[in-house]
Design a protein around this nucleic acid. Structure first.
Lengths: 247, 247
DNA sequence: CGCCTATTTGATCTGATTCAAACAATGTGG
DNA sequence: CCACATTGTTTGAATCAGATCAAATAGGCG
């Protein structure tokens, strides 16, 4: 029913989840020119050492930032859902220090740096929201440091599931207590610094404890309070506005 | 000889290490009004949950960002040397999601948010450098994630020592291959997600392997190539300008 | 149906933690 | 200037969480 939402709809929802956006600004975002491209699963969008000339907006799908170490091990730094601009940093840091890749088939919008810069100049308040967004990113990284360094495997996985849930809910992408999670256990392992085997056992324990149910590429939270407690999860670091947090 | 440098001198050096700064901008920075205060060792400058109304510049000393977990464990996210503005983020994120504290007696400059905002408006290019700086912060966090999640204790400590060295050198605070490191092993443990005991043993091994010498609150790098190799250290993620990197 | 990828299970091994105590360095007050 | 307290470093022994290795099972899908 009705025409499909413009590609920038998810971006508007995202920005509104972290700061107020005026009508005029909303319209400017809708008018923001971008090239939309579909990218297949497990494909790099931007690579370590690249010097991107555009930013990319996740319109549909799921992406992640990661790095591959000399020994071949992979570390995932963050997952990116529709509305995220994972390489906003390339506006100010010319050379990439990590990769950005898809986890599932994605629809990605590309915005040339020059366009983005003009846009920020014309709408400085949105520029500030962008800055704010990159600062939240940094907060997420700090939380991941804490998670990996100081929590045991069970807590780690619980925490990650909480984060995904709250972010997806704020983006309007959760269905009650259920959300799509097309992430393999190997990828969860690369994100949490654990082995696949142990991710599996931790998930089993979370299920056994009645905190979650996990089916085919999706998760249902059975006991939200319990899951938060298990992961010592406190969403403050996501700096979401109250309405996005409650959602 | 001559008068002491103005408190903003370290800030200028820092900004120049990550982007070019014009004469006019340099003068504006020197003129930037700030309140200077000496803060004693092991004291919090800003606390988790605070809503700061000013940013702080490390003029002298060493500070760190950290969080304390429910169980009482502490995680250190970053060390901050003269020239750093560790809570620049508070300009855009009203509530703190971590603490900022001193590790040694520090001289700190406080710049009211309103002043900083006006300054950025008047000197947008410096605003961009500030943004860039917070993006580099995020890069450092990512590297710490990698370090903690994917490297063993020996590598972790080596990597951290490399990072400190390169940053201090870029700030003009290294003396050849020697630099002040008034960080206890317990603090190194809190930064690397290890136990004090193991930090100690890793340091001993680094010494035994002839990579470093460490004396009273200082470190001397005996074998720079070896130390970098041991820690898989690659300074790209610090996004320093070539001249600052070479220093 | 058969191939490929993802999940699950079991057994073993190890890097790092924990606990406990000695030792060294530094500072403090008498 | 020394006794004492305090904080940081070092050492040893026991233990454990999680990695690793290996193999079985379960889903998707062409």
């Amino acid at each position: 029913m009705g025409s499909p939402p413009p590609p920038s709809q998810s971006l508007i929802v995202k920005l509104e989840s972290i700061a107020p956006v005026s009508d005029e600004e909303r319209q400017a975002i809708v008018a923001l020119p971008m090239t939309v491209r579909d990218i297949r699963e497990d494909h790099d969008i931007v690579r370590d050492q690249d010097r991107p000339s555009q930013c990319c907006l996740v319109i549909e799908g799921l992406a992640c930032r990661y790095k591959v170490l000399p020994g071949g091990k992979r570390q995932i730094f963050s997952f990116h859902i529709p509305g995220d601009i994972p390489d906003l940093q390339s506006l100010h840091l010319d050379v990439m220090d990590h990769n950005l890749g898809t986890l599932v088939p994605c629809r990605i919008g590309f915005i040339p740096h020059e366009t983005a810069r003009q846009f920020i100049r014309a709408h400085p308040r949105i520029g500030d929201i962008f800055w704010r967004d990159t600062l939240i990113d940094a907060g997420v990284f700090r939380e991941w440091i804490t998670n990996i360094a100081r929590r045991d495997s069970y807590q780690r996985v619980a925490h990650l599931l909480c984060e995904l849930y709250v972010r997806l809910r704020a983006a309007g992408l959760a269905n009650g207590r259920t959300y799509a999670m097309p992430i393999t256990q190997a990828e969860l392992a690369d994100a949490t610094g654990m082995s696949t085997v142990h991710v599996n056992r931790s998930l089993q324990k979370l299920r056994g404890d009645g905190l979650i149910r996990s089916g085919k590429r999706s998760v249902t939270i059975e006991d939200w309070d319990g899951l938060q407690a298990a992961g010592e999860f406190d969403p403050t670091y996501l700096h979401l506005r109250p309405q996005a947090l409650a959602a």
